[in-house]
Design a protein around this nucleic acid. Structure first.
Length: 591
RNA sequence: GGACCGGUAGUUCAGUUCUGGUUAGAACGCCGCCCUGUCACGGCGGAGGUCGCGGGUUCGAGUCCCGUCCGGUCCGCCA
């Protein structure tokens, strides 16, 4: 006999029928004279009752343990008065068993799967196959599957086609460290796993596929974070004959569609913020717009101030002085402020100045702060006026090098909002646009903010004259302070491409060697094109309200990029290494 | 490369600093017995420990010191 129903299909409409279920023993309750099983399958739970009058079946039930895999048949019956379980969808009924078969035994589990206990992540990852039985993980991966289905539907309906690109490929200049795969047939040569399919998708545009997408596995050998894995999935999209606005409209609609269909959430408008404005107001290019706090520029007020901590940055071009006014921040304790000071220290800030506003009508007397005694009365007065300080406010200041002030206050803004529960809504998407083309890295060289195939908004000539001033048609989509994805209008003109590469100190020979195929494609009738990629794992992480990207990936890696389930990476056999002509330097050979 | 948090029973944790000291505890799980309406069933009893690993200080170390490994959060890195 086979199973006739999934557990979530069982309800009072089946009363009187003989049915059969199969699944795991989620819990057993042995009363000596009667035994209850909650049998779990991927749909849900159902209670099965074993009575002692069926001796054989009852004795099998007595021998069963949690997580045994069983088959059981019986009659669906209304539960006796007063024993209905409202927590189960099948809770009005139960199965009175006539048959029970053990399909597989189970050793006692290393950790419990119920929702009342929690296992550490190390244990969960080691026994990932058990962890994935838990309903939270089941729901996360099901939502992930649903979301990818809706996204595919959306794009397919708009006449996109999905094309796969190779995993064994060549290093592309995305800036991250590559994962390398040695070639057997070309001793000493390596494939690189793609950091993204960027060059392939542009090549596909040259091939005349005008609307492309792909759920693409990407690999980056960099240090991990809660939202970063060495291999991850991008929804990669590229279109010909389009522009930035069309892409942003398409993606806005797509994201709203998937949120609606998956979670029944109506996302609000996606406001557009320029990069410059984002840095100015939030200190970061992926602002959490649920957070009402903003950075206020107060640099000009301190130009003639005697207080060195403020005066120096006020007169330095690369510095910034910004304030965050926290309404009702007076509830913050001295200890919290000390913690904040240590916190901004992580970002290189040397301290955290603050002013408590006790009574703004009393001028300086109504303020409490370790720094005001160093600052002239008139400056304080105009500062309070500029910031529109109100009773109960606390004002934090960041003063120093521009990037340190931005980084530390951006992080502080998030932390304070979290501690004081200031978020104004659940979902706040936005687009960040008008990114600069280049920035200077630590060694003073130009590096692309996005990547070197992003089209500047200016001409070749203007780009050469003022590369740091050039803006691009790049756009990032940001949700709740997380960068969901980004893209740009691409360069389709070989002259512009050469100029950009030359500005990055990549000469024609090197360009030819590294991505000659793209240059060649640009030379043979490549249409104007643009696209973007969505960080699919991150999107699912937000949709499931998970703290970590690992909770939406079936088999993730640890922070040191190992897999606790498979014990990967592992050693290679000597004959494999010999075939690849690989020998180790400076490594103690194990054993 | 750096900062911080954690590692004690199968699991989740307490005990660890200020203050080292007899036999390292709890809960859940597990095992046994009892229990005919429970649903995180209940009752009684029991087993279960290389206190991550190595070294040091000490009469004595889970506890103090040094090193190291593993897991996590973050900075750097990464778009």
């Amino acid at each position: 006999m086979k199973r006739t129903h999934k557990c979530n299909q069982i309800n009072s409409s089946l009363i009187g029928q003989e049915i059969a279920v199969a699944g795991w023993i989620h819990r057993r309750r042995d009363h000596g004279g009667v035994i209850f099983f909650d049998i779990r399958d991927e749909g849900g739970l159902v209670q099965v009752v074993y009575n002692p009058d069926l001796e054989d079946t009852f004795s099998i039930a007595e021998s069963c343990r949690n997580e045994y895999v069983v088959f059981s048949a019986g009659i669906v019956r209304e539960r006796p008065e007063g024993t209905v379980n409202d927590n189960l969808s099948s809770g009005e009924v139960e199965i009175v068993a006539s048959d029970l078969e053990i399909l597989n035994h189970s050793k006692p589990l290393p950790f419990q799967l119920d929702e009342y206990t929690s296992a550490g992540e190390e244990t969960r990852l080691k026994y990932r196959f058990l962890d994935l039985r838990r309903s939270e993980m089941q729901q996360n991966l099901r939502l992930r599957s649903n979301a990818s289905t809706y996204l595919r539907d959306y794009l397919n309906n708009k006449e996109f086609i999905e094309i796969e690109t190779p995993l064994l490929t060549k290093a592309t200049p995305e800036g991250a460290r590559d994962y390398l795969v040695p070639s057997r047939t070309f001793p000493g040569s390596f494939f690189a796993l793609p950091q993204s399919p960027q060059l392939f998708k542009q090549t596909l545009m040259a091939s005349g596929f005008e609307k492309y997408y792909q759920f693409a596995k990407c690999f980056r050998d960099e240090d991990l974070r809660a939202d970063r894995q060495p291999e991850f999935t991008q929804l990669d999209i590229e279109l010909s004959f389009t522009d930035a606005d069309e892409i942003m409209n398409l993606i806005t609609e797509m994201i709203r569609d998937v949120f609606k269909k998956t979670l029944d959430i109506d996302l609000d408008k996606f406001p557009k913020i320029t990069y410059r404005e984002a840095i100015e107001k939030y200190g970061i290019d992926k602002p959490d717009l649920r957070n009402p706090l903003e950075l206020l520029e107060v640099k000009s007020l301190f130009k003639n101030c005697d207080f060195k901590v403020f005066n120096d940055p006020a007169n330095d071009e690369d510095s910034r002085i910004a304030a965050i006014r926290v309404p009702n921040g007076k509830s913050l304790t001295r200890k919290q402020i000390d913690d904040y000071t240590a916190f901004v220290g992580n970002y290189g800030a040397k301290g955290l100045a603050y002013i408590r506003v006790e009574d703004p009508s009393k001028g300086k007397e109504g303020l409490q702060s370790p720094i005001i005694k160093f600052i002239e009365d008139e400056i304080i007065e105009s500062l309070m006026k500029n910031l529109d300080a109100k009773e109960g406010d606390i004002i934090f200041f960041g003063a120093g090098k521009r990037n340190i002030v931005n980084d530390s206050l951006a992080a502080l803004r998030d932390l304070v909002a979290k501690d004081l529960d200031l978020l104004t809504c659940e979902w706040a998407p936005c687009w960040v646009i008008d990114f600069p083309m280049f920035e200077k890295n630590n060694s003073g060289n130009l590096t692309p903010l996005h990547h070197p195939f992003t089209a500047p908004k200016c001409s070749v000539e203007d780009l050469k004259i003022d590369p740091l001033g050039a803006l691009t048609d790049a756009y990032d989509v940001v949700l709740n302070g997380t960068e969901l994805g980004g893209g740009s209008v691409r360069i389709h003109d070989q002259e512009m491409q050469r100029t950009v590469l030359n500005l990055l100190s990549i000469d024609d020979d090197e360009a030819e060697e590294k991505f000659g195929f793209l240059i060649s494609a640009l030379q043979h009738g490549c249409p104007p094109h643009a696209g973007l990629a969505i960080g699919f794992d991150r999107m699912i992480m937000l949709m499931t309200d998970s703290d970590s990207i690992r909770d939406v990936i079936a088999f993730p890696k640890t922070q040191t990029a190992s897999c606790l389930l498979t014990d990967a990476p592992g050693q290679a056999a000597q004959d494999q290494l010999d075939e690849l002509h690989i020998r180790f330097h400076g490594l103690e050979k194990e054993e």
